[in-house]
Design a protein around this nucleic acid. Sequence first.
DNA 1: GCGTGATCATTG
DNA 2: CAATGATCACGC
Length: 227
Amino acid sequence: MNFPTAPKTIAELEQRIELMAGLTLGEIANELDVMVPEDLTVEKGWAGQLIEAYLGATAGNLPEPDFQHLGIELKTIPIDSSGKPLETTFVSVAPLSGEITGTWQDSTVYKKLNHVLWVPIIAERKMAIPHRQIATPFLWKMTKHWESELSRDWQELTDLIVFGHHDKINATHGQWLQLRPKAADSSVRTDAYDQQGNPVKAPPKGFYLRTDFTRQLLTQQFQLDTL
DNA sequence: GCGTGATCATTG
DNA sequence: CAATGATCACGC
């Protein structure tokens, strides 16, 4: 099967996402000759990887934007029929060891969220996978306002890591971003530092966007669409 | 084992 | 029923 190649320009990407609006996951899977799972319990990232393949995203599992040449990150977001996000959005793993004292603009969170192609998918749990439908994908560039908001959260969460407060790290910190487990299971441990700066083991964490953030983005986008 | 893609499942 | 904590597949 021929998978699409990466779009060379933003204009080309914009053309492709216009053609994608309204398609169901079943239609896209059929076009790519991909089997559709019964449910996502054992293939949780299936929809995201399907859309990546459909749009020719190239970064694979590198910690870089999906469309490397364009510097654009692809994020699918499950929504209900009213447009409300159903899940938080994973951003990137949080570094717990090595150089964790960098600046906001050096962070993987900034690099991933600076320029994003959001692909909302109407995907209520009761809907069969093939019937789930691409809504209106849109390109989003981080504004000064959101950069101010997100960098504040990032600093708060990063401080917890830098100061070794692993016992206090949970999903309740941060207004828009949060830290949550990111591992195969709860027994996994990775290298980190304690409060004295000595090496210890701690549960791996990831940065996630709360649904409040994506809900606001979608609301803004919806208003623009109706102008 | 880590980082990519995320959603599941239990709890308050 | 939303939010937090737990979990699954894949590539390397």
